[in-house]
Nucleic acid binder design. Structure first.
Length: 488
RNA sequence: UCCUCCUUAGCUCAGUUGGUUAGAGCAUCUGACUGUUAAUCAGAGGGUCGUAGGUUCAAGUCCUACAGGGGGAGCCA
């Protein structure tokens, strides 16, 4: 009988700590399960179950078996059943008076690297990425990341977009979006060779050379030309040897593609979209955002005054919501930069002299952080520095591209209206030596009922970076993949 | 990939112009105490100074290479 009772308690539905703390109810029985953050005074357990950064205080009787007390170490998984009562102490409204306590999993204090009183660095936590979810900072970040991802789907669903799963493995290497990871089942020690001595990919799994996708855009366009509005949201891979706080080898990208949209419609959608997901986070993750805001203030205390943020995190997000993004053309931007103080005083490492050169990070940062002090959408770039598929303007030298630049992040969105004219597109591809044959499936959309359309790509981690106030992209993805790093 | 800085205890960091046995705080362990809030108090254990070479009577400290990390740049989302 006792055994059955124990089994029932063990199996009973646990209450999430977030819900218990949210309600003012007292004097009811619950079971909670989670991990010990700290055990104070042989009496008080701070229990965390990941539903919130706030811990539930568990009170155990002073005559609890000392052997059991010793096992209440930081990190141990426990199950507690008892009564939620008004707290006698000052730090919390309610607490759980334990009646039954079971250790589900011991945690050796000597070996467990996370102790509440220690302040491990973000870099160190990255090395123990399998455990960093148990810290307040990463708890907040990844609950936030979840909400943002959910909001992405919510936004597009409400707008009637179709979520299209574009392929992860692709045979086209003509997109020019960067270095690609090869996918192969060939024996790397002795691959089959052609008569010319090259590797014979006809023998490979797919009968041709294949890679991991660098973008779902081209396939996305096919969807848009049937469903009208589609979006993709999936993993994307770039084998660039990029060692920065803004790049990952594996990241998640959102790529909407809309038929009958021009560049302005595209910008309007992108701005509405970004504001929508930020609003969603503010409405649904306020506690975590407040925590991250406090963390940011603490982090910036060690920085010189001049480098600190002018606004708090939440303030900054509200600011983005309440202000229109600044929209200017590339040509206008060049004029502003040419006449800017740092350009005249030769403070830029790369001085802005002539129309046609690509903007450097320092120029983008000047426009966003110093000149306009808000997100900026740059449009109508020189064709020479943009991709083949972008719609050519009538001036013959610019294309209908748009990049959205964010403070501290740089380019968060890259998009364009697409060239829907078959002849113009093929001509441009030939100029850039892009194999037309290989992309005949893509060009077919321009042969069979072509229509104006547009789309953009948004780097999801860059969005999370901005909303969380973190500064290194490796800290906003659970298991970062970067050059020389594929742990876990 | 380039420039630059860093790597000392489980964590966060000191370590002087090269000079005896490499320190602190926190964590951990042991004991005490008990309505605590990063609990407190007392004691203990814990180091191949990133790796491999080199210079020197002597290297944590100087030099070289490599590895990993930070910041900046390029490429981009």
């Amino acid at each position: 009988m006792q055994l059955i009772l124990k089994f029932i308690i063990y199996m009973s539905q646990r209450e999430k700590i977030k819900q218990i703390l949210l309600s003012d109810k007292t004097n009811y029985e619950v079971t909670v399960k989670g991990w010990v953050r700290t055990f104070r005074n042989n009496q008080f357990i701070a229990l965390n179950d990941g539903s919130t950064n706030n811990n539930l205080q568990i009170v155990i009787s002073l005559d609890t078996d000392p052997a059991l007390q010793r096992r209440l170490t930081t990190g141990a998984a426990i199950s507690v059943t008892g009564e939620i009562v008004e707290s006698l102490g000052k730090g919390q409204k309610v607490e759980l008076k334990a009646r039954e306590l079971e250790i589900l999993g011991d945690c050796d204090g000597e070996k467990y690297p996370l102790q509440l009183k220690n302040k491990p660095s973000l870099e160190y936590l990255r090395e123990i990425a399998h455990l960093r979810f148990r810290t307040n900072t990463f708890g907040a970040i990844f609950r936030l990341r979840h909400s943002l991802a959910f909001a992405v789907h919510k936004f597009f669903n409400e707008k009637g977009f179709v979520y299209l799963h574009t392929p992860i493995i692709t045979a086209s290497d003509a997109e020019g979006a960067g270095e690609m990871f090869r996918v192969t089942t060939l024996d790397m020690k002795k691959p089959p060779l052609t008569v010319d001595g090259d590797i014979d990919y006809k023998e490979d799994f797919f009968g041709k050379s294949t890679n991991l996708t660098v973008s779902g855009q081209l396939e996305g366009e096919l969807g848009a030309m049937a469903f009208g509005d589609i979006y993709t949201f999936g993993p994307t891979f770039r084998a660039e040897n990029s060692n920065t706080a803004r790049h990952l080898a594996e990241f998640w990208m959102i790529e909407p593609e809309m038929a009958f949209y021009d560049l302005k419609d595209n910008m309007d959608l992108a701005e509405e979209f970004i504001k929508y997901v930020i609003r969603y986070a503010l409405d649904n993750n306020r506690e975590d955002l407040d925590f991250l805001a406090t963390r940011l203030i603490e982090e910036e205390k060690s920085k010189p005054q001049a480098e600190r943020s002018e606004m708090g995190l939440v303030e900054k997000l509200e600011f983005v919501l309440n202000n229109e993004f600044m929209r200017i053309t590339y040509t206008e931007a060049i004029d502003i930069l040419k006449n800017s103080k740092p350009n005249k005083n030769k403070k830029f490492n790369y001085l802005v002299e002539e129309w046609g050169t690509d903007l450097q990070s320092e120029h983008e940062r000047f426009l966003v952080e110093k000149h306009f002090k808000k997100p900026v959408i740059l449009t109508d770039y020189p064709a020479a520095i943009k991709s083949f598929y972008m719609k050519q303007n009538e001036d013959g030298k610019t294309v209908r591209a748009m990049d959205i630049l964010f403070p501290g992040i740089g380019e968060i969105v890259g998009g364009s209206q697409r060239e829907e004219n078959y002849e113009k597109l093929v001509k441009r591809m030939e100029e850039l030596h892009i194999p037309v044959e290989e992309l005949s499936w893509y060009l077919d959309t321009r042969r069979f009922g072509t229509a104006p359309h547009a789309g953009f790509g948004l780097g999801f981690e860059r969005l999370v970076l901005f909303v969380s106030g973190m500064t290194n992209i490796r800290d906003v993805i659970p298991f970062p993949r970067t050059p020389k790093n594929a742990e876990f």
